[in-house]
Simulated assay, not measured.
Amino acid sequence: MNNAWFKSSHSGAEGGQCVEVKRTTAAVRIRDSKAAAGPVLTVSPSAWTQFIGLTWHKSTYSGAEGGECVEVAAGPGAVHIRDSKSTAGPLLTVSPATWTEFVRAVSPK
């Protein structure tokens, strides 16, 4: 799992008033991007998902057992993709335009 800190997508070019987030299997850590050595808020992955309001949708190609598939959640300004068998694992995040192009490319013509 990637243990890097990620800056909020709402951050300006100067890095102004924003937060950084680090997601691990066990927890999500949040800190002020201007005070990296300062306090860190730690929450569970499920609490973080509820906080940011993501609703996950399982692929329609998933079998009844949940098999090998992905889940997708659209948030403000980003689309998040995760492994349905490892929901606390890493996320792939892309822009809505990139996701739309991907879906268009893989959809039956």
Rank of each mutant, 00 (worst) to 15 (best):
V40R: 05
S84C: 12
D32P: 03
F51T: 15
R82C: 12
F51K: 12
A37K: 11
L54C: 01
R104D: 13
D83S: 15
T24C: 13
A35Y: 10
I81A: 04
R31E: 10
S84K: 05
T25F: 15
S59L: 08
H57V: 11
E65A: 05
A97V: 14
C69K: 00
K85H: 10
R31V: 02
G89S: 15
V72R: 03
P96Y: 11
V19F: 03
V103M: 10
S84M: 08
L92I: 06
S62K: 00
K34L: 01
T24Y: 08
T100V: 06
K85M: 09
S59M: 04
L92F: 02
A35D: 14
S84D: 14
S62T: 02
H57L: 02
S95E: 11
V19T: 04
G16I: 00
V19A: 02
K85Y: 11
W48Q: 06
T24K: 09
P39V: 07
A27V: 06
T49W: 02
W56P: 04
T49S: 03
L91P: 09
A73F: 09
I52C: 13
P96Q: 11
S84T: 14
I52D: 14
S33G: 10
A73E: 08
E68I: 03
S84I: 04
S107C: 13
A97T: 15
A37F: 07
V106K: 01
C69H: 00
V106A: 02
G75I: 09
S33R: 00
V79S: 10
Q17M: 06
S84F: 00
Q17V: 02
I81M: 10
S44K: 04
W99S: 00
E68D: 10
A47H: 09
I30G: 07
A78Q: 10
V28F: 08
T100S: 13
C18F: 00
A26E: 15
Q50S: 10
F102K: 07
T60W: 07
A47N: 10
V19Y: 07
R23L: 03
C69T: 01
S59P: 02
E20D: 14
V70H: 01
T25R: 12
K85G: 11
R29I: 10
A73K: 08
E101W: 13
G38T: 02
S62G: 07
V19P: 03
P45D: 07
A27D: 12
G16S: 03
V106L: 02
R31F: 09
K85A: 12
V72M: 03
D83P: 12
P108L: 07
T87A: 15
K22C: 08
C69F: 00
K22Y: 02
K58N: 11
C18P: 01
T93E: 11
